[in-house]
Nucleic acid binder design. Structure first.
Lengths: 157, 157
DNA sequence: CCTATGCATTGATGTACATCAAGAAATGAC
DNA sequence: GTCATTTCTTGATGTACATCAATGCATAGG
């Protein structure tokens, strides 16, 4: 468990790396994302303070995710093996499963506006800290679409 | 850990239930799915033999998923608490996280045809066992769209 | 301070997929 | 076997969102 400081923009892990590192965010903000064959970027998750950020790849297989810092960030680095040995935080694991389950359901059942409203409710503090185009990438829509959703919502009030 | 037989069509769990049961499939096929506010059904996952099927809801909160049997199925039922106590299968948990991560990436980056091809590659044995409309529901597209994807693919060869 | 780069917005157009509707084929009940 | 129900396909139309392009605003670097 090694504590380090990373500067905004620093890349901790690249797609294709073989790594079983896990990053526990103490302060700041990480993000994990992938780049598909068409060159498009998709944010998998944001990692604000107290979140665990990691690629859930199998041991000794190439990672699918890039991980980098959106803000200057202080992280604790651990290895999956070590976490597993010392008895991992099972509740954290369950919570993570739950988060991912919600995400999948949302991606399958919601349109752009619903996704945005859900995001705002679930992560009210993230929206002020990242450019909107990253929010769009997380939601699975384009920045243009997000801009229009926000415009429409502002009219409704 | 109780072993039971369930008939095709039997419902093991409903959305809104408070349940921390986990179903280990010995033979047969389960499915978990949700029904959204618009009344549309979305299959979250299929559970063929040796899979673990469960709602990843937090303890004592209502489930989001229905779980039922697509075929006559033999399952072992356990409680999450018990599994946690006796040291859960961590590798299975990691594999599950990986599966869900892949699903999220797929939903964000792939079109209907790519999703279908990915499904065929990943679950080659499921496709013969379920109606295509369930495959469509799993992929997040309509049965009509799936039918056309399959038609186009058959022409390509 | 000025300029370059990235970000957000807006409009015009394109497209993948949804929806609706009808018919054919398969499946199941009796 | 026959009838009813569900499933699958095909066509016509609709729509949410993507894409492309232009412009105004910030922000950062020299």
């Amino acid at each position: 468990m090694k504590k380090i400081n990373v500067k905004k923009g620093a890349v901790l892990q690249r797609k294709g790396d073989i790594s079983s590192r896990v990053y526990l965010v103490e302060s700041g903000l990480l993000r994990s994302y992938t780049i598909d064959e068409k060159g498009k970027e998709h944010i998998f998750m944001f990692g604000p303070e107290h979140w665990l950020v990691a690629d859930s790849c199998e041991p000794n297989t190439p990672c699918q995710l890039f991980i980098d810092a959106i803000e200057d960030t202080i992280i604790n680095i651990a290895l999956k093996e070590d976490l597993l040995k010392e008895g991992p935080d099972l509740n954290a694991l369950l919570r993570r499963l739950n988060t991912m389950q919600n995400r999948i359901i949302m991606l399958m059942s919601s349109n752009a506006k619903e996704r945005y409203e859900h995001f705002i409710k679930t992560y009210p503090n993230i929206i002020q800290r990242v450019p909107l185009k990253m929010v769009a990438s997380y939601l699975g829509i384009t920045p243009e679409a997000l801009s229009r959703v926000r415009h429409d919502l502002s009219l409704e009030k």
